[in-house]
């Protein structure tokens, strides 16, 4: 049977790993290549890099990190942040990324998702959706790392990216991100119930039972977390053993 995936995410700014608290206050947590290797050796099912510098002049930095990481980690590597053009995707894939995650550019122009999935295959196109609750059971899509409101309903958008060839959705709750109070389970449930592609839960993990909630209550196919792993609170192995003990199937 297909296992639930645990994906540590490394937020990278100017070549260093950081973790945003509500996307604003940043702390340094080390070297990305070294960190990725630790995760992969520790049993991470995938590794995710999110380049939060994402300005054009610094694209070479992340590409270099991807290149180095891909030579040492033999599990899937997803890279996101500032992916705007087909050329950006080509560069990342050539450097050794297995999937790219598209956020703002997908919202601006959903045809970009279509074009990218047609060219590279759905298997390597992840659409990252940053959603914020606007009223009871209603979430809106935000862009630019959570700064810009779009007026787009998150559920409608999730369906739309699926239709346009996205292979997976990386769903981040802007309300929960950095709070360590758990995923927005209602948001997850709503999106997983209205789409047929795998959804990766993101934003808010503070303890291992939050991972459980994301999978069992939220219906996520994979759970992404950053800070609980970075600062050594938990190892990937702890997370897997915990989930396994609660009868959630994982790759041990």
């Amino acid at each position: 049977m297909l296992k639930n995936r645990i994906i540590p995410c490394l937020d990278v700014k100017d070549g260093r790993v950081v973790k945003g608290i509500n996307f604003v206050e940043l702390k340094d947590a080390g070297d990305p290549v070294e960190q990725a290797k630790i995760y992969s050796d520790g049993g991470a099912d995938e590794i995710c890099f999110l380049d939060i510098t994402a300005s054009n002049e610094n694209r070479e930095t992340i590409i270099d990190i991807v290149r180095k990481t891909a030579k040492e980690c033999f599990v899937p590597l997803t890279v996101g942040g500032g992916v705007r053009t087909i050329q950006n995707i080509t560069d990342l894939l050539l450097a050794g990324a297995d999937k790219v995650s598209i956020n703002t550019s997908a919202v601006k122009n959903v045809d970009f998702v279509k074009e990218a999935s047609k060219k590279f295959g759905s298997q390597c196109i992840v659409v990252a959706i940053d959603a914020k609750k606007v009223s009871e059971n209603k979430w809106e899509v935000f862009t630019h790392g959570g700064r810009n409101k779009t007026g787009i309903n998150a559920v409608d958008f999730a369906k739309k990216v699926e239709e346009n060839g996205a292979g997976e959705i990386l769903l981040t709750s802007m309300d929960k991100d950095g709070t360590k109070s758990g995923y927005d389970v209602d948001l997850l449930k709503t999106i997983t119930n209205s789409t047929n592609i795998p959804v990766i839960a993101s934003g808010g993990v503070g303890s291992l039972d939050h991972l459980y909630d994301g999978i069992v209550k939220g219906g996520a196919s994979a759970v992404l977390a950053a800070s609980i792993f970075h600062y050594g609170e938990y190892k990937i192995k702890d997370a897997k053993e915990y989930l396994n003990s609660k009868n959630v199937s994982v790759r041990l």
Partner: peptide
């Protein structure tokens, strides 16, 4: 995929 019961693509680790 049995009418949506199984998500596609089949992504991840399987035995």
């Amino acid at each position: 995929n049995q009418k949506g019961k199984f998500k596609l693509p089949h992504i991840g680790w399987n035995e």
